[in-house]
Simulated assay, not measured.
Amino acid sequence: MLKGINQWCYPEDTSLENVFRYSKEAGFDAVELNLYKPGGIGLTLDTSAKEAEAIKKLAESYDIELRSLSTGLLWEAPLSSNDASTRERGRTIVKKQLELASVMGMDTVLVVPGIVDEKTSYADCYQNSQAELRLLSEFAEQLGVHIGIENVWNKFLLSPLEMKRYVDELNSDLIGVYFDAGNVLQFGYPEQWIRILGKQIRKVHVKDFRRSVGNITGFVPLLAGDVNWKEVMTALHEIGYNDTVTAEIPSYSISSYDLAHDTSRHMDVIFNCLLTTERA
């Protein structure tokens, strides 16, 4: 497996060169970039193919792989919206992700499929998002880039059986799951999700969570929460997953350089937990 870190783990004003440099010095193999609004650092909705190629070359100069692309923009333009213009904006965002991923040699983009709220019922979220993803799957197939549906705190796809069915119904080899181990801990067990989703999993995020907190502030550094990492790694090995595992945790209030090193060491423990036994 490749050890990756998301750009979000660093403060917003961190240059891409420093993101790549800090990550490489900490021992990471890959960095997951994000798509931002115009004016953001790195990839944005205005980034040209030429600019994207330059960013890829910068990553290569640090021997960093770019294997996936995430974004937070779909929270503002969900594919599940009952408003057609909002869904169109969301579709445009995902298309930009796919285009940039194709140019940069990334094989997967992370997509939050929709949001259930007072204005969008669960049924509407299911139907609207699937309709949009069917349209986007055609574009993904043209480019050969996978869409990874993330399990996230959006009040949607709350069980692994439902997520598996949701993806199966889309009937596309280019649509799978971007699985986040920490995100399911409030209402499930990540190892169970992994075994049920199996080959649908395209990429994996890792973060940790304390159930006793029970809200968004319960997300903590790796190894400080309740994820059973030995079981998670056992499940990943069982399904034959051998791709990128990317840390996605909040940045430190100071010293992003130390965050990278701490997280890298924590991931080494996670990767090696099947090879070691607890000291007596």
Rank of each mutant, 00 (worst) to 15 (best):
K3L: 11
N6I: 12
W8D: 08
W8A: 14
C9D: 06
S15I: 09
R21G: 01
R21E: 11
S23I: 09
L33D: 04
N34Y: 05
N34M: 09
N34G: 11
L35S: 06
Y36K: 15
Y36L: 11
K37T: 13
G39S: 07
G42S: 08
G42P: 07
L43Y: 07
T44V: 05
T44D: 04
K50G: 05
E53C: 02
I55N: 01
K56L: 15
K57M: 10
L58N: 12
E60N: 11
S68K: 04
S70E: 01
G72V: 09
G72M: 11
G72Q: 09
W75V: 15
W75M: 15
W75F: 15
E76F: 12
P78I: 05
S81V: 10
R87P: 07
R89G: 02
G90H: 06
G90R: 04
V94R: 05
L98W: 05
E99F: 09
A101H: 09
G105S: 10
G105Q: 07
M106V: 08
M106H: 08
L110H: 07
V111Q: 07
I115N: 07
V116S: 03
D117S: 14
Y122H: 14
A123V: 13
R134W: 04
L136S: 07
A140S: 15
E141G: 11
Q142E: 15
H146C: 14
E150G: 08
E150W: 05
V152P: 01
V152Y: 13
N154W: 02
E162W: 07
K164V: 03
K164N: 13
Y166E: 02
L170A: 10
D173R: 15
I175C: 06
G176L: 06
V177K: 03
Y178F: 15
D180E: 15
A181W: 00
Y189K: 13
Y189E: 14
Q192M: 08
Q192Y: 13
I196R: 02
I196N: 03
G198S: 11
K199W: 11
I201H: 03
K203S: 12
S212P: 00
N215Q: 10
N215I: 01
F219C: 00
M233E: 08
L236Q: 06
E238F: 10
E238G: 02
V245K: 01
A247L: 01
Y252L: 13
S253H: 13
S255L: 14
A260S: 12
A260F: 08
H261M: 11
T263I: 10
L274S: 07
T277R: 12
R279L: 13
